[in-house]
Design a protein around this nucleic acid. Structure first.
Length: 644
RNA sequence: GCCGUUGUAGCUCAGUGGUAGAGCACUUCCUUGGUAAGGAAGAGGUCAAGGGUUCAAUUCCCUUUAACGGCUCCA
């Protein structure tokens, strides 16, 4: 007998060689029907795998992340079985679960899978699922595995096998499909009740753009049709709050073929949001001791050679303009310009920390396929600043920047983000990163120290640093699930020396400052794109392009409505009057759809009493108020930059 | 940049080898209506651009361009 310990600490005895499925059955039939995979001593196992020793056991269902990934990974195998049936000779690479579903990369040779084929594959998968085939695990000696795939002529699986050691190789078979796979899998295909193949895409083999492009098939499956339906509704909801859709509907920005790809034109409504954000940044930065500067949009090649940017980023800069034998580049970053401002006048340690801020306009020639609404553009306005400080000042300065982030995130109610400590990769010193192994270690430790001492939750990732130093990126997700860096806080130990930036220290000796690059509000483009989705277009009053819409019941009250709006406008409230010849219901509907926070309905009663009937967007009629009273309330709401 | 899909009115989208349609928006008129769509009439399109096949191309083919779904990339 062996002892099985459950998550609640209970211990029960079972026959040696029992399985997680048997254990589940011993608890209840209902559980046995729902269970998908098992956690055995922290590893995810097949339910049918014999347990031969004492173990900690956790049973996973669809509601657990481990359950879902197992379910989806098994679904990828099912999809592969269907594809192999329809496209004999297809070769498979890998088929992992992802955040919402799974994919499988495959080499179809000269054949192509079309959208219509997806429906046929779905149908086939449904047929195969109904056969209720078991997923059978089999341990394989490496030689036998190599022989199997050599015979099959599958160079992809042979490539995978190369990295595996004898004794850790397993095959899984369900129905007519056998795959090299470490598992685990669900017990049988019958659990997969609802299938949706979502899209076809190209993907480079091993993620390297120099390699051949494979066909990637994405899909998602569920244990019931109901869950699939709910998922599709959720997707539809997400599409509705896509910033590209809302940006158009709310008149925030537009793109034009004659202007060029990735070059957003800010419409009046979007410009109001830009100006509110800049006002916030300006207030915050002045209070934090920053000095504001303004720099040109272009600079000579020599500056980017000095900074070191050119060799790293030439391909993603707009090509240079040549004038009188000089090359000028559109700036892709503001730092070199700021460094020149630092260098313009001699500095003493008494001038440090020296903080320069600018909403800088940058141009980056992002590859055409990378452009994405406002989130990835070619002209961007960055909430940039550079802080020049001594090593001793670094902790306080870096921490202050971090605090500024948190302050901003609170204002906007941003909660779903990940702070990512992005480190260098020692193997790429001299290529992707400046070759200063010691300085890398030192500054990485400095940054990590700030995060730890401030109890900031973060994840560490290798090979994501800037070329001049480590950084903290704030990662967020667009409504359709794509990940972006919203804000960034970077250390730079390289450019100071390259630009020969110096200050005179206490001992009257020249010393190079450390530089912090920071952009807590990212760029206007990405930040507003994010906010559109974050608020689903319902901006808080202080950011709303139109804060108040006055809706006269009929033309007879138009003059009164205008007088109310004028009064609000005199107090810097963005108010408009709906003077169209429409019924009140229509005016309300249109104003609601434009997400105007406050609607003031005015008719006979209101006019006679100098009042307004206040309607809050999304909340309906909230009663009648004096004009003064409403004005005072909304002024306060704007001033405090109140959220909900 | 690569693989795939798409491009028809300001917007959302039908449609066709014989030079185009709906709803909303817009203009005018009627209506003056109290909390999510009042009615009528009208105007609006080189069917992304260029080339080819054809008696005839918005429709079929090719190229370009842009957007979209991914991959790669992101100072």
């Amino acid at each position: 007998m062996i002892n099985i310990t459950f998550p609640d600490g209970a211990v029960r005895q079972y026959e040696r060689g029992t399985t997680a499925l048997n254990i589940a059955k011993s608890i209840s039939e209902g559980l046995a029907r729902k269970v998908i995979a098992a956690g055995v001593n922290g590893q995810v196992w097949d339910l049918s795998r014999p347990i031969n020793e004492d173990a900690n056991l956790k049973l996973y269902t669809w509601n657990d992340a481990e359950g879902k990934t197992t379910f989806w990974h098994s679904s990828a195998h099912l999809m592969a079985e269907a594809v192999e049936g329809m496209f004999p000779g297809v070769k498979f690479w890998v088929g992992p679960p992802v955040e919402n579903g799974f994919y499988y990369d495959m080499d179809l040779g000269d054949r192509k899978i079309s959208e219509e084929d997806l429906t046929a594959i779905e149908k086939k998968m449904n047929e195969l699922a109904k056969k209720n085939s078991q997923y059978i695990r089999k341990e394989m000696p490496k030689a036998a595995a190599v022989e199997y795939f050599t015979e099959k002529g599958d160079e992809y699986k042979l490539d995978l096998l190369q990295q595996l050691n004898d004794g850790e190789i397993t095959f899984y078979t369900q129905g007519n499909f056998t795959d090299l796979c470490r598992g685990p899998h669900i017990p049988n295909t019958g659990l997969i009740k609802a299938i949706k193949l979502t899209n076809i895409a190209g993907a480079y083999w091993k993620g390297d753009e120099k390699n051949k492009q494979l066909t990637r098939l994405y899909g998602v499956t569920f244990p019931s049709q109901k869950e699939l339906d709910e998922y599709l509704v959720l997707l539809e909801e997400a599409r509705k709050r896509d910033h590209r859709k809302l940006g158009k509907e709310l008149g925030i920005y537009t793109m034009d073929d004659d202007v060029g790809p990735g070059l957003a034109l800010w419409l009046p409504n979007g410009t109001i949001i830009i100006e509110e954000l800049e006002r916030l940044a300006k207030e915050t930065e002045l209070a934090a001791g920053y000095k504001r500067v303004v720099t040109p949009h272009i600079a000579k090649e020599s500056m980017y050679l000095t900074s070191g940017h050119l060799p790293y980023y030439q391909d993603s800069m707009y090509p240079p303009m040549e004038l009188e034998g000089q090359k000028y580049y559109l700036k892709a970053m503001n730092c070199p310009h700021h460094h020149k401002i630092f260098a313009a006048e001699p500095k003493s340690y008494k001038d440090l920390p020296f903080r320069l801020a600018e909403y800088g306009t940058c141009y980056r020639y992002e590859q055409s396929g990378e452009l994405f609404g406002l989130m990835r553009v070619r002209c961007l306005h960055m909430n940039d600043a550079h802080i020049y400080c001594t090593k001793e000042q670094f902790y306080e300065e870096f921490k202050a920047v971090n605090d500024m982030y948190i302050k901003y995130f609170k204002i906007f109610g941003i909660e779903k983000y990940v702070m990512r400590l992005s480190l260098h990769n020692p193997e790429k010193l001299g290529q992707k990163y400046v070759d200063e192994p010691e300085l890398w270690k030192e500054t990485e430790a400095l940054v990590r120290d700030v995060l730890i001492r401030t109890n900031t939750p973060f994840v560490e990732v290798q090979d994501e640093a800037a070329f001049y130093g480590p950084k903290i990126d704030v990662q967020i997700w667009s409504t359709i699930g794509r990940e972006f860096t919203l804000a960034t806080n970077q250390v730079d130990f390289a450019q100071g020396r390259r630009f020969k930036l110096e200050f005179t220290n206490h001992d009257n000796k020249p010393e190079t400052p450390l530089i912090i690059h920071r952009a807590p509000l990212g760029t206007h483009e990405r930040f507003i794109g994010f906010l559109l989705e974050h608020y689903a277009g319902k901006f808080p009053v202080w950011l709303a392009p139109v804060q108040v819409k006055v809706l006269p019941i009929s033309d007879k009250f138009l003059d009164y409505g205008k007088s109310v709006a004028d009064k609000l406008k005199k107090s810097d409230i963005r108010a408009e009057v709906d003077d169209r010849n429409e019924k009140i219901g229509k005016k309300i509907r249109d104003t609601e759809l434009m997400r105007v926070p406050y609607m003031l309905v005015v008719g006979e009663k209101e006019m006679n009493e100098n009042k307004v009937a206040v309607r809050r967007q999304g909340k309906g009629d909230t009663g009648v108020k004096g004009v003064e009273e409403f004005l005072n309330e909304i002024k306060l709401e704007v001033e405090e930059r109140r959220g909900e």
